[in-house]
Design a binder for these strands. Sequence first.
RNA 1: GGGGGAGUUCCCGAGUGGCCAAAGGGGACCGGCUGUAAACCGGUUGGCUCCGCCUUCGCAGGUUCGAAUCCUGCCUCCCCCA
Length: 391
Amino acid sequence: MADPALVRELTRNAAHVLPEGELERKLDRGRPLRVKLGIDVTSPDIHVGRAIPLQRMRAFQDAGHVGVLIVGDYTTRIGDPSGRSSERPVLSDDEIDRNARTYVDQAMIVLDPDRTEVRYNGEWLAKLDFAEIVRLTRVATVAELLTRDDFRKRYEAELPISVSELLYPLAQGYDSVAVEADVELGGTDQLYNLLMGRKVMEAYGLEPQVALTTPLLLSWDGEKMSSSIGNNVPLTAPAEEQFGRTMRIPDELLPEWYRLVLESDDDPLAADPMGAKLRLARWVVARSHGEEAASAAEAHFTRVVREGRAPEEVPEVTVAADGGTVYLPAVLVDLGVASTSEGRRLIAQGGVRLDGEAVTELEVPASRLDGALLQAGKRRFARVSVRADTA
RNA sequence: GGGGGAGUUCCCGAGUGGCCAAAGGGGACCGGCUGUAAACCGGUUGGCUCCGCCUUCGCAGGUUCGAAUCCUGCCUCCCCCA
Protein backbone atom coordinates (compact mmCIF):
# COMPACT_ATOMS: atom_id res chain seq x y z
CA MET A 1 0.00 0.00 0.00
CA ALA A 2 1.20 3.45 -0.86
CA ASP A 3 2.22 5.43 2.19
CA PRO A 4 -0.60 7.95 2.78
CA ALA A 5 1.84 10.57 4.09
CA LEU A 6 3.90 10.24 0.93
CA VAL A 7 0.84 10.51 -1.29
CA ARG A 8 -0.19 13.61 0.61
CA GLU A 9 3.21 15.17 -0.04
CA LEU A 10 3.22 14.24 -3.72
CA THR A 11 -0.26 15.64 -4.25
CA ARG A 12 0.19 18.63 -1.97
CA ASN A 13 -1.78 21.62 -3.27
CA ALA A 14 -3.08 19.56 -6.16
CA ALA A 15 -6.30 20.77 -7.76
CA HIS A 16 -6.95 17.50 -9.60
CA VAL A 17 -5.45 14.03 -9.32
CA LEU A 18 -7.25 11.97 -11.94
CA PRO A 19 -8.48 9.32 -12.12
CA GLU A 20 -9.01 8.80 -8.45
CA GLY A 21 -6.91 6.05 -6.87
CA GLU A 22 -4.81 5.63 -9.98
CA LEU A 23 -1.72 7.32 -8.57
CA GLU A 24 -1.77 5.01 -5.56
CA ARG A 25 -2.06 2.00 -7.86
CA LYS A 26 0.94 3.11 -9.88
CA LEU A 27 2.97 3.82 -6.76
CA ASP A 28 2.22 0.35 -5.48
CA ARG A 29 4.08 -1.20 -8.38
CA GLY A 30 7.23 -0.17 -6.57
CA ARG A 31 9.14 1.07 -9.62
CA PRO A 32 10.15 4.69 -10.13
CA LEU A 33 7.41 6.57 -11.94
CA ARG A 34 8.08 8.75 -14.94
CA VAL A 35 6.64 12.15 -14.09
CA LYS A 36 6.24 14.41 -17.08
CA LEU A 37 6.04 18.16 -17.29
CA GLY A 38 5.99 19.97 -20.60
CA ILE A 39 7.08 23.57 -20.96
CA ASP A 40 6.67 25.62 -24.06
CA VAL A 41 9.39 28.05 -24.97
CA THR A 42 7.39 31.05 -26.09
CA SER A 43 8.92 33.42 -23.57
CA PRO A 44 12.42 33.43 -22.19
CA ASP A 45 11.71 32.86 -18.55
CA ILE A 46 10.14 30.58 -16.00
CA HIS A 47 8.42 32.43 -13.21
CA VAL A 48 7.39 31.65 -9.67
CA GLY A 49 3.91 30.57 -10.80
CA ARG A 50 5.17 28.12 -13.35
CA ALA A 51 7.57 26.78 -10.77
CA ILE A 52 4.68 25.38 -8.77
CA PRO A 53 4.23 22.24 -10.88
CA LEU A 54 8.04 22.03 -10.96
CA GLN A 55 7.95 21.93 -7.17
CA ARG A 56 5.63 18.93 -7.43
CA MET A 57 8.06 17.29 -9.78
CA ARG A 58 10.76 17.88 -7.23
CA ALA A 59 8.64 16.17 -4.59
CA PHE A 60 8.35 13.10 -6.82
CA GLN A 61 12.08 13.20 -7.42
CA ASP A 62 12.78 13.36 -3.72
CA ALA A 63 10.67 10.22 -3.35
CA GLY A 64 12.83 8.41 -5.88
CA HIS A 65 10.88 8.98 -9.08
CA VAL A 66 12.10 10.35 -12.38
CA GLY A 67 11.24 13.80 -13.63
CA VAL A 68 10.83 13.98 -17.40
CA LEU A 69 11.10 17.58 -18.43
CA ILE A 70 9.88 18.13 -21.95
CA VAL A 71 11.03 21.21 -23.74
CA GLY A 72 8.40 22.02 -26.33
CA ASP A 73 10.79 23.22 -28.97
CA TYR A 74 8.84 21.61 -31.78
CA THR A 75 5.37 22.49 -30.60
CA THR A 76 6.59 26.05 -30.26
CA ARG A 77 8.10 25.95 -33.72
CA ILE A 78 4.90 24.82 -35.43
CA GLY A 79 2.91 27.15 -33.16
CA ASP A 80 0.02 29.04 -34.59
CA PRO A 81 1.15 31.27 -37.45
CA SER A 82 -2.25 32.89 -38.06
CA GLY A 83 -2.73 36.57 -37.36
CA ARG A 84 -2.49 36.44 -33.59
CA SER A 85 0.99 37.82 -33.73
CA SER A 86 0.52 40.10 -30.76
CA GLU A 87 -0.26 37.24 -28.43
CA ARG A 88 1.81 34.41 -29.76
CA PRO A 89 4.63 35.68 -31.89
CA VAL A 90 6.18 32.97 -33.98
CA LEU A 91 9.71 32.74 -32.76
CA SER A 92 12.74 32.20 -34.90
CA ASP A 93 14.60 28.90 -34.60
CA ASP A 94 17.48 30.68 -32.93
CA GLU A 95 15.24 32.25 -30.33
CA ILE A 96 13.58 28.93 -29.63
CA ASP A 97 16.91 27.18 -29.21
CA ARG A 98 18.20 29.91 -26.96
CA ASN A 99 15.03 29.88 -24.87
CA ALA A 100 15.10 26.11 -24.68
CA ARG A 101 18.61 26.07 -23.28
CA THR A 102 17.95 28.70 -20.62
CA TYR A 103 14.71 26.96 -19.68
CA VAL A 104 16.50 23.88 -18.59
CA ASP A 105 18.93 25.89 -16.49
CA GLN A 106 16.03 27.74 -14.91
CA ALA A 107 14.08 24.59 -14.19
CA MET A 108 17.09 23.17 -12.36
CA ILE A 109 16.72 25.96 -9.81
CA VAL A 110 13.80 23.89 -8.56
CA LEU A 111 14.54 20.38 -9.82
CA ASP A 112 17.06 17.72 -8.86
CA PRO A 113 19.32 17.48 -11.94
CA ASP A 114 20.35 13.92 -11.09
CA ARG A 115 16.80 12.70 -11.35
CA THR A 116 15.74 14.74 -14.35
CA GLU A 117 15.51 13.51 -17.88
CA VAL A 118 15.39 16.41 -20.33
CA ARG A 119 13.79 15.71 -23.68
CA TYR A 120 13.03 17.96 -26.64
CA ASN A 121 9.78 17.03 -28.32
CA GLY A 122 11.23 17.75 -31.75
CA GLU A 123 13.01 14.45 -31.18
CA TRP A 124 9.84 12.53 -32.01
CA LEU A 125 7.39 15.08 -33.41
CA ALA A 126 9.74 15.98 -36.27
CA LYS A 127 9.63 12.37 -37.39
CA LEU A 128 5.86 12.03 -37.68
CA ASP A 129 4.81 11.55 -41.27
CA PHE A 130 1.45 12.60 -42.56
CA ALA A 131 -0.17 9.19 -42.20
CA GLU A 132 0.90 9.12 -38.57
CA ILE A 133 -0.45 12.60 -37.98
CA VAL A 134 -3.78 11.62 -39.48
CA ARG A 135 -3.85 8.60 -37.21
CA LEU A 136 -3.24 10.90 -34.28
CA THR A 137 -6.06 13.23 -35.28
CA ARG A 138 -8.51 10.32 -35.20
CA VAL A 139 -8.14 10.23 -31.42
CA ALA A 140 -10.46 13.18 -30.95
CA THR A 141 -13.44 14.79 -32.64
CA VAL A 142 -13.76 18.46 -33.49
CA ALA A 143 -16.65 18.84 -31.07
CA GLU A 144 -14.48 17.35 -28.37
CA LEU A 145 -11.64 19.73 -29.10
CA LEU A 146 -14.00 22.68 -29.08
CA THR A 147 -15.34 21.86 -25.65
CA ARG A 148 -12.09 23.11 -24.26
CA ASP A 149 -12.82 26.32 -22.43
CA ASP A 150 -10.49 28.73 -24.17
CA PHE A 151 -11.39 27.41 -27.60
CA ARG A 152 -15.07 27.65 -26.82
CA LYS A 153 -14.76 31.20 -25.56
CA ARG A 154 -12.77 32.29 -28.55
CA TYR A 155 -15.19 30.60 -30.88
CA GLU A 156 -18.12 32.34 -29.25
CA ALA A 157 -16.29 35.66 -29.33
CA GLU A 158 -15.61 35.15 -33.04
CA LEU A 159 -11.89 35.16 -32.46
CA PRO A 160 -9.61 33.15 -34.70
CA ILE A 161 -8.77 29.55 -33.93
CA SER A 162 -6.38 27.92 -36.33
CA VAL A 163 -6.34 24.22 -37.07
CA SER A 164 -2.76 24.06 -35.83
CA GLU A 165 -3.96 25.15 -32.43
CA LEU A 166 -6.51 22.34 -32.39
CA LEU A 167 -3.65 19.99 -33.08
CA TYR A 168 -1.76 21.21 -30.09
CA PRO A 169 -3.44 19.06 -27.43
CA LEU A 170 -2.89 16.01 -29.62
CA ALA A 171 0.78 16.82 -30.07
CA GLN A 172 1.15 17.24 -26.34
CA GLY A 173 -0.61 13.93 -25.81
CA TYR A 174 1.78 12.30 -28.23
CA ASP A 175 4.64 13.54 -26.05
CA SER A 176 3.22 11.37 -23.29
CA VAL A 177 3.29 8.40 -25.62
CA ALA A 178 6.89 9.10 -26.60
CA VAL A 179 8.19 9.32 -23.05
CA GLU A 180 5.79 6.73 -21.64
CA ALA A 181 4.63 9.03 -18.88
CA ASP A 182 3.09 7.62 -15.71
CA VAL A 183 2.06 11.01 -14.41
CA GLU A 184 1.76 14.36 -16.12
CA LEU A 185 1.90 17.61 -14.18
CA GLY A 186 0.51 20.98 -15.16
CA GLY A 187 -1.44 24.01 -14.08
CA THR A 188 -5.20 23.70 -13.84
CA ASP A 189 -5.39 25.33 -17.27
CA GLN A 190 -3.67 22.22 -18.58
CA LEU A 191 -6.28 19.76 -17.32
CA TYR A 192 -7.84 19.38 -20.74
CA ASN A 193 -4.50 18.69 -22.37
CA LEU A 194 -3.49 16.25 -19.68
CA LEU A 195 -6.69 14.29 -20.09
CA MET A 196 -6.26 14.33 -23.85
CA GLY A 197 -2.88 12.78 -23.18
CA ARG A 198 -4.68 9.87 -21.55
CA LYS A 199 -6.82 9.35 -24.63
CA VAL A 200 -3.84 9.48 -26.93
CA MET A 201 -1.87 7.01 -24.83
CA GLU A 202 -4.79 4.64 -24.80
CA ALA A 203 -5.10 4.87 -28.57
CA TYR A 204 -1.44 3.92 -28.81
CA GLY A 205 -1.86 0.95 -26.52
CA LEU A 206 -0.20 2.42 -23.45
CA GLU A 207 -1.50 2.67 -19.91
CA PRO A 208 -2.87 6.21 -19.56
CA GLN A 209 -1.04 8.67 -17.34
CA VAL A 210 -2.32 10.19 -14.14
CA ALA A 211 -3.22 13.86 -14.56
CA LEU A 212 -2.08 16.03 -11.66
CA THR A 213 -2.79 19.74 -11.77
CA THR A 214 -1.83 22.58 -9.47
CA PRO A 215 -3.65 25.90 -9.06
CA LEU A 216 -2.54 28.89 -11.04
CA LEU A 217 -0.73 31.48 -8.99
CA LEU A 218 -2.29 34.93 -9.03
CA SER A 219 -0.04 37.93 -9.19
CA TRP A 220 -0.25 41.40 -7.67
CA ASP A 221 -2.86 42.53 -10.19
CA GLY A 222 -5.14 39.63 -9.34
CA GLU A 223 -4.49 38.03 -12.73
CA LYS A 224 -2.80 34.74 -13.40
CA MET A 225 0.94 35.24 -13.39
CA SER A 226 2.13 35.48 -16.96
CA SER A 227 5.28 36.55 -18.71
CA SER A 228 3.38 38.12 -21.56
CA ILE A 229 1.36 40.33 -19.19
CA GLY A 230 4.50 41.18 -17.28
CA ASN A 231 3.13 40.54 -13.80
CA ASN A 232 5.67 37.81 -13.23
CA VAL A 233 8.48 37.08 -10.83
CA PRO A 234 11.03 35.31 -13.02
CA LEU A 235 13.26 32.69 -11.41
CA THR A 236 16.27 34.33 -12.99
CA ALA A 237 15.44 37.99 -12.41
CA PRO A 238 17.98 39.97 -10.38
CA ALA A 239 17.57 39.57 -6.62
CA GLU A 240 16.40 43.12 -5.98
CA GLU A 241 13.83 42.89 -8.75
CA GLN A 242 12.47 39.59 -7.45
CA PHE A 243 12.24 41.01 -3.96
CA GLY A 244 10.41 44.15 -5.06
CA ARG A 245 8.02 42.29 -7.31
CA THR A 246 7.12 39.86 -4.57
CA MET A 247 6.49 42.75 -2.19
CA ARG A 248 3.92 44.09 -4.63
CA ILE A 249 1.43 41.33 -3.99
CA PRO A 250 -1.55 42.46 -1.92
CA ASP A 251 -1.97 41.05 1.57
CA GLU A 252 -5.02 39.05 0.51
CA LEU A 253 -2.86 36.89 -1.74
CA LEU A 254 -0.36 36.07 0.99
CA PRO A 255 -2.12 32.93 2.24
CA GLU A 256 -2.23 31.53 -1.29
CA TRP A 257 1.44 32.29 -1.91
CA TYR A 258 2.37 30.74 1.42
CA ARG A 259 0.49 27.62 0.53
CA LEU A 260 1.61 27.26 -3.08
CA VAL A 261 5.04 28.85 -3.21
CA LEU A 262 6.42 28.39 0.29
CA GLU A 263 4.46 25.17 0.83
CA SER A 264 4.00 26.38 4.37
CA ASP A 265 1.05 25.84 6.68
CA ASP A 266 1.72 29.08 8.55
CA ASP A 267 -0.95 31.74 8.46
CA PRO A 268 0.82 34.86 7.19
CA LEU A 269 -1.98 37.17 8.25
CA ALA A 270 -2.08 35.90 11.82
CA ALA A 271 0.42 38.38 13.18
CA ASP A 272 2.39 40.81 11.06
CA PRO A 273 1.53 40.79 7.34
CA MET A 274 4.50 42.97 6.45
CA GLY A 275 6.89 40.62 8.18
CA ALA A 276 5.23 37.66 6.51
CA LYS A 277 5.58 39.26 3.11
CA LEU A 278 9.23 40.02 3.73
CA ARG A 279 9.78 36.38 4.68
CA LEU A 280 8.14 35.29 1.45
CA ALA A 281 10.25 37.66 -0.63
CA ARG A 282 13.41 36.45 1.09
CA TRP A 283 12.48 32.87 0.35
CA VAL A 284 11.84 33.56 -3.33
CA VAL A 285 15.17 35.33 -3.73
CA ALA A 286 17.08 32.74 -1.69
CA ARG A 287 15.86 29.89 -3.87
CA SER A 288 17.26 31.56 -6.97
CA HIS A 289 20.26 33.43 -5.63
CA GLY A 290 21.06 32.11 -2.16
CA GLU A 291 20.63 33.43 1.38
CA GLU A 292 23.23 36.14 1.09
CA ALA A 293 21.62 37.70 -1.96
CA ALA A 294 18.26 37.52 -0.21
CA SER A 295 19.56 39.51 2.75
CA ALA A 296 21.13 42.06 0.43
CA ALA A 297 17.90 42.40 -1.54
CA GLU A 298 15.97 42.99 1.65
CA ALA A 299 18.47 45.61 2.77
CA HIS A 300 18.08 47.32 -0.60
CA PHE A 301 14.31 47.26 -0.31
CA THR A 302 14.42 48.71 3.19
CA ARG A 303 16.79 51.46 2.18
CA VAL A 304 15.27 52.50 -1.14
CA VAL A 305 11.57 51.77 -0.78
CA ARG A 306 10.79 51.97 2.90
CA GLU A 307 13.23 54.71 3.82
CA GLY A 308 13.23 56.49 0.48
CA ARG A 309 17.00 56.76 0.29
CA ALA A 310 19.24 56.22 -2.69
CA PRO A 311 20.66 52.76 -3.23
CA GLU A 312 24.27 52.10 -2.24
CA GLU A 313 25.34 51.39 -5.77
CA VAL A 314 24.30 53.99 -8.31
CA PRO A 315 25.20 54.07 -12.00
CA GLU A 316 27.25 56.94 -13.40
CA VAL A 317 26.01 59.23 -16.11
CA THR A 318 28.31 61.60 -17.92
CA VAL A 319 26.98 64.75 -19.51
CA ALA A 320 28.72 66.98 -21.98
CA ALA A 321 28.08 70.63 -21.24
CA ASP A 322 29.00 73.25 -23.77
CA GLY A 323 27.89 76.20 -21.74
CA GLY A 324 26.46 77.18 -18.43
CA THR A 325 23.33 75.03 -18.45
CA VAL A 326 22.28 71.52 -19.32
CA TYR A 327 18.96 70.45 -20.85
CA LEU A 328 17.78 68.08 -18.16
CA PRO A 329 15.21 66.00 -20.11
CA ALA A 330 18.00 64.74 -22.36
CA VAL A 331 19.93 63.57 -19.29
CA LEU A 332 16.85 61.76 -18.02
CA VAL A 333 16.72 59.76 -21.24
CA ASP A 334 20.16 58.43 -20.27
CA LEU A 335 18.58 57.22 -17.03
CA GLY A 336 16.06 55.15 -18.93
CA VAL A 337 13.23 57.64 -19.33
CA ALA A 338 11.53 56.91 -22.66
CA SER A 339 11.73 60.33 -24.28
CA THR A 340 12.52 63.93 -23.57
CA SER A 341 8.80 64.64 -23.65
CA GLU A 342 8.30 62.17 -20.85
CA GLY A 343 11.25 63.70 -19.06
CA ARG A 344 9.55 67.08 -19.25
CA ARG A 345 6.38 65.63 -17.80
CA LEU A 346 8.31 63.98 -14.99
CA ILE A 347 9.89 67.30 -14.11
CA ALA A 348 6.54 69.07 -14.27
CA GLN A 349 5.11 66.49 -11.88
CA GLY A 350 7.86 66.92 -9.36
CA GLY A 351 9.22 63.46 -10.06
CA VAL A 352 12.80 64.53 -10.71
CA ARG A 353 15.20 65.26 -7.87
CA LEU A 354 18.74 66.56 -7.66
CA ASP A 355 20.38 65.61 -4.38
CA GLY A 356 16.91 64.98 -3.00
CA GLU A 357 15.45 68.30 -4.05
CA ALA A 358 12.68 68.45 -6.66
CA VAL A 359 13.72 70.16 -9.87
CA THR A 360 11.33 72.67 -11.41
CA GLU A 361 13.20 73.89 -14.48
CA LEU A 362 14.27 72.21 -17.71
CA GLU A 363 17.62 73.92 -17.96
CA VAL A 364 19.91 73.29 -15.02
CA PRO A 365 23.27 74.96 -14.35
CA ALA A 366 26.09 72.55 -15.11
CA SER A 367 27.67 73.39 -11.79
CA ARG A 368 24.60 72.19 -9.92
CA LEU A 369 24.55 68.97 -11.89
CA ASP A 370 28.19 67.99 -11.56
CA GLY A 371 28.61 65.31 -8.93
CA ALA A 372 24.94 65.47 -7.98
CA LEU A 373 22.64 62.52 -7.37
CA LEU A 374 19.89 62.57 -9.97
CA GLN A 375 16.66 60.69 -9.30
CA ALA A 376 13.77 60.14 -11.74
CA GLY A 377 10.72 58.78 -10.01
CA LYS A 378 11.12 56.19 -7.32
CA ARG A 379 13.43 53.77 -9.00
CA ARG A 380 15.86 55.46 -11.34
CA PHE A 381 19.01 56.90 -9.86
CA ALA A 382 22.32 58.09 -11.25
CA ARG A 383 25.38 60.02 -10.20
CA VAL A 384 26.02 62.76 -12.75
CA SER A 385 29.38 64.03 -13.81
CA VAL A 386 29.75 66.92 -16.21
CA ARG A 387 32.44 66.80 -18.84
CA ALA A 388 33.49 70.06 -20.40
CA ASP A 389 32.66 70.02 -24.05
CA THR A 390 35.17 72.22 -25.80
CA ALA A 391 34.21 71.27 -29.32
C1' G B 1 -17.35 30.23 -54.78
C1' G B 2 -21.38 33.72 -52.65
C1' G B 3 -23.08 37.07 -48.69
C1' G B 4 -22.34 39.91 -44.20
C1' G B 5 -18.94 42.29 -40.60
C1' A B 6 -14.22 44.28 -38.86
C1' G B 7 -8.90 46.52 -38.76
C1' U B 8 -8.11 53.41 -34.15
C1' U B 9 -2.81 55.67 -30.01
C1' C B 10 0.66 49.90 -24.94
C1' C B 11 -4.35 46.87 -24.59
C1' C B 12 -9.77 47.05 -24.85
C1' G B 13 -12.82 50.44 -27.11
C1' A B 14 -15.65 55.46 -28.66
C1' G B 15 -15.33 58.45 -32.82
C1' U B 16 -18.76 58.89 -39.93
C1' G B 17 -15.54 65.79 -43.09
C1' G B 18 -13.14 70.87 -39.31
C1' C B 19 -14.46 71.72 -31.99
C1' C B 20 -9.19 65.10 -32.92
C1' A B 21 -2.98 63.80 -30.70
C1' A B 22 -8.42 61.51 -30.99
C1' A B 23 -13.98 60.03 -25.39
C1' G B 24 -14.13 56.10 -21.67
C1' G B 25 -11.86 51.94 -19.23
C1' G B 26 -7.42 48.96 -18.28
C1' G B 27 -2.27 49.10 -17.84
C1' A B 28 1.95 52.05 -17.02
C1' C B 29 4.17 56.32 -14.88
C1' C B 30 4.39 60.73 -11.25
C1' G B 31 2.79 62.93 -6.61
C1' G B 32 0.35 62.48 -1.74
C1' C B 33 -0.54 59.07 2.01
C1' U B 34 1.33 54.30 3.97
C1' G B 35 4.04 48.55 7.22
C1' U B 36 5.09 47.60 1.14
C1' A B 37 6.94 48.66 -5.22
C1' A B 38 -0.13 47.02 -1.78
C1' A B 39 -4.86 49.80 -0.81
C1' C B 40 -6.77 54.73 -1.23
C1' C B 41 -6.77 59.88 -3.30
C1' G B 42 -5.00 63.36 -7.14
C1' G B 43 -2.40 63.92 -11.77
C1' U B 44 0.14 62.36 -16.42
C1' U B 45 0.08 59.05 -20.58
C1' G B 46 2.76 60.26 -29.57
C1' G B 47 7.49 62.94 -30.70
C1' C B 48 10.39 67.46 -30.68
C1' U B 49 15.19 72.37 -26.19
C1' C B 50 7.51 72.24 -26.59
C1' C B 51 3.36 79.04 -25.76
C1' G B 52 4.75 76.40 -31.65
C1' C B 53 6.12 72.53 -35.01
C1' C B 54 6.20 67.32 -36.72
C1' U B 55 4.30 62.24 -37.20
C1' U B 56 -0.07 58.97 -35.99
C1' C B 57 -6.25 55.96 -36.73
C1' G B 58 -4.34 48.21 -41.63
C1' C B 59 -1.32 49.67 -46.56
C1' A B 60 -1.06 52.73 -51.14
C1' G B 61 -3.24 56.37 -53.91
C1' G B 62 -7.30 60.11 -54.66
C1' U B 63 -11.36 63.97 -53.65
C1' U B 64 -11.37 68.51 -50.49
C1' C B 65 -9.31 74.88 -48.19
C1' G B 66 -9.42 70.68 -44.57
C1' A B 67 -10.00 63.23 -43.77
C1' A B 68 -9.47 58.50 -38.48
C1' U B 69 -14.03 59.95 -40.92
C1' C B 70 -15.66 60.32 -48.31
C1' C B 71 -13.76 57.52 -53.07
C1' U B 72 -10.44 53.62 -55.57
C1' G B 73 -7.19 49.54 -55.23
C1' C B 74 -4.64 46.20 -52.05
C1' C B 75 -3.57 43.35 -47.42
C1' U B 76 -5.35 40.90 -42.95
C1' C B 77 -9.09 38.86 -39.68
C1' C B 78 -14.18 37.13 -38.12
C1' C B 79 -19.13 35.02 -39.12
C1' C B 80 -22.88 32.76 -42.31
C1' C B 81 -24.25 30.04 -46.79
C1' A B 82 -22.19 26.49 -50.43
